[in-house]
Amino acid sequence: MTAASAPMLREIQIQDEYGQRRSLHIPAERPLTVFVDKRELVTLMTLGAAPEMLVLGYLLNQRLVSSLEDIESITVDWDVHAAAVKTRHGIDDLDSRTAKRVVTTGCGQGTVFGDLMQQVDAVHLPAADNARIRQSTLARMLDTMRQQDSIHRKAGSVHGCALFEGDQLLMFVEDVGRHNAIDTIAGWMWLHGVTGGNKTFYTTGRLTSEMVMKAAHMGVPIVVSRNGVTQMGHDLASKLGMTLFGRAANKHFLCYTGFDRFDAEPLPQPAAVRVVAGSDT
């Protein structure tokens, strides 16, 4: 078994609510395609801290193997983002046992990664001059979400997503997983003939590559999250010309990508705290 851990963080440049640009570290999300006895099984999204353990746990949890003795080797190669699993006696009925995949409600949904990545070049978003957001509009959006009556406020354990036109809330939905919530909004847009070019998408969940791609497929060029962003989410947004905001709550935010779509109205810097000589503060 290899021990192919990977760097966990990546440094990027952001712009904050005060108009300042500075460096910040984000999680280094990456795909890992698992092959079992030379047959492709699944692509998992991971930080890569212990990829061999991830693959082993996946096989055990999916009941594809029953014991460690079933596995001869697990080899991870980050140059090709692949994990090669060699079993001692093969896996009986692998095709039928993996033909019906149930996408769970959890935050990871790596099985869809390959299909989404193949569609990157087919995404066409409006130019920056035609889809913009002002800092004051962003602040009003965040205030709307702060006041929104929600399941999360009463019970927790859910993610919320919303669609805005300017500062007007068009659609809000909560679900046990953020992927369910964004898919619900996509379905609502499709049913009602709503286009995304002049819209902003909001989510309480972190901006992984999958969430960024789903927003792009909805035609929405501006995405706001109460949480952060991963490396692949950042890379995809940069490639697609999207604007991402993270750590967004009240009037605070970090703009990760797409500064050209953002009309900044910087807040005044907070006053420096004076320390009186001889005081305990």
Rank of each mutant, 00 (worst) to 15 (best):
F253Q: 01
Q118R: 15
Q62E: 14
S209K: 11
D167P: 04
A249G: 08
V102P: 10
R134I: 10
P7M: 08
M1Q: 01
T208V: 14
P270V: 08
A82M: 12
F201D: 01
T43V: 03
P7T: 03
K100C: 09
G108M: 10
W78L: 08
K38R: 15
V80G: 04
R226A: 15
V194L: 09
A162V: 11
M45Y: 02
A186C: 06
E265Q: 10
V123L: 08
R10D: 12
Q147F: 08
S23Q: 13
T2I: 05
V223Q: 05
V123G: 02
I151E: 10
D93N: 09
D260N: 10
R10K: 13
E40K: 13
S73I: 07
L125S: 00
G228L: 09
G166N: 03
S238G: 11
A155T: 13
D92T: 14
V212Y: 00
V34G: 07
E29W: 00
A83Q: 04
F262K: 01
G106V: 15
A127E: 13
E29Y: 02
G108C: 07
A82K: 13
M45S: 12
N130F: 11
H217C: 09
T281D: 12
R261P: 00
F253D: 03
P31D: 01
I91R: 05
M45L: 15
K251N: 11
A82F: 02
A264P: 04
D183T: 13
E11F: 06
A49W: 07
L170D: 08
E17F: 03
N198R: 08
V220S: 05
A186Q: 11
V176K: 00
N250P: 06
G177P: 11
A139I: 11
V36I: 15
F172V: 08
W188H: 14
G177I: 11
S23E: 14
C161Y: 09
T204H: 12
S157G: 04
D149P: 06
D95I: 14
D121E: 12
K199C: 14
D121H: 00
K86H: 09
G219Y: 04
V36N: 06
V102L: 13
G110L: 03
D260Q: 12
F201A: 13
T33A: 08
E17W: 06
T104H: 14
N198V: 07
L24H: 09
K214W: 02
P31I: 00
L116F: 13
V158G: 02
G110R: 07
A216E: 00
